[in-house]
Amino acid sequence: MTVISTILLISGLIFFTGGSVGILRFPDFYARLHPAGKLDTMGLFMTLSGMAVYVLSDFTVSALLTALKIMLIVVFIFITSPTATHAIADAGMRAGLWPWARTREEEK
């Protein structure tokens, strides 16, 4: 169980790292939302399920309850995080922010 949870935690950290690098490296607002929304959600899912697996390594009823609570956090994150990303992208569109394109750069 510990091995599984370690693998899950490390892969979650890889997702988080990718998300952070993406936020820094991508060219514009919409492209930055992409790693911020997706990779953070996935990284959180991985790390939290790793924690849930770790808690379950000695199986009791209270450990099961704790694992269920952790997975409940994942459910709420899966509802709210894409919604927040959607709202931010929507606000960007409404504020008149155009997506970055290479041709527009070359025209200047």
Binding site: F76, I79, T80, T83, H86, A87, D90, R94
Partner: peptide
Amino acid sequence: WVPYDLVIQQASCLVIPF
């Protein structure tokens, strides 16, 4: 006025009671 955003409304409806 901004058009009604179904995604945000439904998601907030889902989350607010919890």
